[in-house]
């Protein structure tokens, strides 16, 4: 399998764990994997991206513009910001819930709706709602695992759900495992439904 996956969001949303789970799972299925993270000052509420490159032929850690098969966006405006990385027929999974910037002025009026509409008009995408999806788990912190479930469910991730569940058990601390697995399954269900509707 050869697949370039870009994960984007806002610092603090848990994109790094999402990319780690995808990378580890792809490796478990025998693929070569390279990935890259945003670490440092930008993690404090700035725009962050993770590049996950599955398969041979990825010389560099960064996905070229127009090269991503899949864009997983934790936030609507971040999906738009990084859309140029998506392939022509690439797939987008995007969270509907916006993270408003702290600075007043620029945050006024931003609610993510225009961004979601734009994405839907331009590409094949699955819109998910982190608030609704994570409500049973008590915190939107579980969205990072839920959204991987959604990606796996659509089949666009190209990695088996069981492989990912095993990874979660391996790398997530034991006391959070149950909720993370449930979040993964909840996301997966949405992904499967979307895929079935197509």
């Amino acid at each position: 399998m050869k697949k370039d996956i870009m994960i984007c969001g806002v610092g603090g949303q848990g994109t790094v764990l999402a990319s780690k789970i995808i990378a580890a799972s792809a490796m478990d299925e025998g693929s070569a994997v390279h990935s890259a993270e945003t670490i440092g000052m930008a993690q404090r509420g700035g725009s962050v991206t993770s590049h996950v490159r599955i398969g041979e032929g990825a010389y560099s850690p960064l996905i070229p513009v127009g090269g991503a098969d899949l864009l997983i966006a934790f936030e609507p405006s971040e999906a738009v910001r990084n859309l140029r990385y998506l392939k022509k027929d690439g797939f987008v999974i995007v969270n509907r819930v916006p993270v408003k910037p702290t600075t007043l002025g620029s945050s006024e009026g931003y609610d993510g709706k225009e961004e979601i509409a734009f994405l839907q008009s331009k590409c094949d995408c699955l819109v998910v709602d982190s608030d609704a999806l994570c409500a049973p788990f008590g915190s939107s912190k579980f969205f990072n695992v839920a959204v991987i479930g959604a990606a796996a469910g659509t089949g666009k991730l190209g990695i088996g759900a069981d492989t990912i569940r095993n990874t979660i058990v391996r790398i997530v601390p034991e006391r959070f495992q149950e909720k993370n697995l449930a979040a993964f399954d909840a996301g997966s269900k949405i992904g499967v439904n979307q895929y079935a509707n197509q």
């Binding site: 806002v10 610092g11 000052m41 930008a42 993690q43 404090r44 509420g45 700035g46 725009s47 513009v65 127009g66 090269g67 405006s77 971040e78 738009v80 910001r81 859309l83 140029r84 990385y85 998506l86 392939k87 022509k88 690439g90 408003k100 910037p101 702290t102 600075t103 620029s106 945050s107 931003y110 225009e114 961004e115 734009f118 331009k122 590409c123």
Partner: peptide, 17 residues
């Protein structure tokens, strides 16, 4: 030839805080 992103709404600035 990547995905069409012409006419995208301007994303908000996100300076680290």
């Amino acid at each position: 030839t990547g995905a069409d992103h012409a006419g995208a709404p301007q994303p908000p600035m996100r300076p680290p805080v």
